[in-house]
Design a protein around this nucleic acid. Structure first.
Lengths: 195, 195
DNA sequence: CACGGTTTTCAGTATTTTCTGAAAATAGCC
DNA sequence: GGCTATTTTCAGAAAATACTGAAAACCGTG
């Protein structure tokens, strides 16, 4: 068997794994977790822990923890092959479903706690007896933050969460609404992936 | 002079600094940088390096580097006070301007490089002579990624970047478009902050 | 152009985060 | 239940990241 860079597809996969891993770490996700996801997504295959360990050269523990996290995020699913005791993992292939899961999860983990803090802070601030100009300005700043994050939460919930569909529609709507001036042709829309 | 938690506003400020710092680190921004920004935003004052060092208990070097980064991001501005040699810093107070700056910057730093990689990977992938079903599926996955990130880039550029205004409008549009069903009243919209 | 005040830089250190590897838990099978 | 294959956990190690402090650079002034 030849080198792993024997064909351009494998090379492309590796490059994608690297790029996605970097993106992930810039967004506060562990590089390895993003790489595992990248590998599962780009190959499209059901891989077992050993496949992933081998391809990414990581330990069993790391693979196990990353996979669990990805399953928790809802962008990777566990599967089995008949007659094989091992667990296999597949990435969600529909890119909008994936995007929704990611956005939903980040909302839950980061925006909601922040909003909870902001509400507490607002209560605390309004307890201040005096009503100087400085205090009013402070309160207004808090209000503005609460308002923008509530708006974000609302929008995300509307387009991303419950029923499912909607994000694409919104994207298309905006796309249309602002008028098309893109250079490239409409080759391969992002909404057509198989689920 | 009393304790620093002497009044609820100061307490609220500290809490906000902490919450914003946590949010920042979940999003791949250094905690301190986010805290410095939080402090400048929430106080609304022009503070000098020493003020910030004292309030956040950080070193001069750290303060200097964080401030520079914030200025680079375009969400903090340098100012001066007449008859004072020191530099002072103020946070952008308009929350939409701030949001636009942040989104724009992240697009530039993280989405654009990813897209560049994806384009290279696409070229690489298409070099594969053979056209098996597996290869076609691989190419389609890459196309889907390119499409979704190009859409994101386009939307962000449209609403966030050049002319300036637009994000609020979009938000309001969507807000309207999906029909209002929020429990709370419309107290204090996020768009009214002074610049 | 020398001086005091101010800011920046950066080598070294501290802290945080991530990863490993082996032991413990779990799960299917006979 | 006992046996083996597989997965999970987690204490400690390694790597990455952030922070400090002091020296160097900068900058307006006399």
């Amino acid at each position: 068997m030849a080198n792993k860079s024997d064909n351009p597809i494998t090379e492309a996969e590796d490059r994608f794994v690297t790029a996605w891993g970097q993106m992930g770490s810039a967004w506060g996700i562990s590089r390895t977790m993003a790489e595992v996801h990248a590998l599962l997504y780009i190959t499209g295959d059901a891989l077992c822990t050993d496949d992933i360990m081998a391809r990414l050269e990581i330990s069993r523990g790391n693979a196990s923890m990353s996979l669990r996290a990805l399953v928790d995020w809802g962008i990777v699913l566990r599967t089995h092959k008949r007659g094989d005791r091992k667990e296999y993992f597949v990435a969600e292939q529909d890119i909008w479903t994936m995007a929704r899961a990611i956005v939903r999860e980040r909302l839950k983990r980061e925006v909601e706690p922040l909003l909870a803090s902001l509400h507490e802070i607002r209560d605390l601030s309004s307890k201040s007896g005096a009503e100087t100009e400085a205090i009013e300005a402070h309160n207004e700043r808090i209000e503005n933050l609460v308002a923008i994050f509530e708006l974000i939460e609302l929008l995300v919930q509307r387009f991303v969460s419950p029923s499912g569909e909607g994000l694409e529609a919104a994207a298309m709507l905006l796309h249309q609404h602002t008028g098309e001036r893109d250079a490239e042709g409409e080759s391969g829309g992002a909404g057509e992936a198989r689920s």
